[in-house]
Design a protein around this nucleic acid. Structure first.
Lengths: 125, 125
DNA sequence: ACCGTACTACGATGCCTATCGTACGAGTCG
DNA sequence: CGACTCGTACGATAGGCATCGTAGTACGGT
């Protein structure tokens, strides 16, 4: 498509770079999909880290015991189920929890799951 | 433990019959397992009905759009993940939510999920 | 004893998915 | 430009699982 590089204007922020990723809109998010996404230990771990920093993290920040291919797969599942939002920023891909959307759709759900995960971790997870 | 059939006492309740089913004890219940169990539409539906009556229901009470074999499978997944408790009462198999255990282990989780499911159903699920 | 009901067990099938390795595209910096 | 980093795409593989059908077991009533 059009390259955002010409036109005299200075590119002030790296923004979403060119390629953008398909996300479900808020009302397309399904409870079953969210639960399924969070029922995988690797993905639950990712979401817990994202919730802890309450900001965005690059994919490479996570040091998961799986290959990069598999990591990509898990992030895609989380994005397609509506749990996280992803955007390119330069070569990095930033990930953020869709807290607002999830809280509007399913009030208390995310917090209950995060709390449950924390308790289980304390008990020795 | 002791069989309730001897001793002059009248058998007032059919009780657990003979065969009993393996359940995880409370501390063996894993969050991932619970989320996975509830991420299936059929099983979520079962759990919603059980929560609605807040008592026990026989397997045959449910009119699911699958065969009985499949229904048995779903109930086993729910039992083995710690979401429900099952016991034979005569020829019927009664099912009840393990609310107490789940609420102690993961406070607010079950309610949040049930509320989320109800909201989604209202929105047209 | 017999039958009907309730549920199970087992095998088959087809789909989904978690995982890997390798090869590639996009962006940054020298 | 070239090299390097970050992440993707694709194919393969192996295991899990939702579903079915059929055959079987347990229990209760007649």
């Amino acid at each position: 498509m059009e390259s955002p590089k010409e036109s005299g204007a200075v590119v002030t922020s790296p923004a979403v770079s060119s390629r953008d990723l398909p996300h479900p809109v808020r009302d397309e998010i399904r409870l079953e999909g969210v639960l399924h996404a969070l029922s995988d230990p690797m993905r639950l771990r990712i979401v817990r880290e994202l919730a802890a920093v309450s900001g965005e993290l690059s994919c490479s920040h996570f040091d998961l015991p799986v290959t990069k291919s598999t990591t990509t797969h898990h992030f895609r599942v989380l994005r397609e189920s509506g749990v996280i939002r992803q955007a390119y920023r330069g070569t990095a891909k930033m990930n953020g929890l869709r807290r607002g959307d999830l809280d509007e759709l399913f009030p208390g759900l995310l917090d209950a799951i995060l709390d449950a995960a924390a308790r289980q971790a304390v008990r020795g997870g």
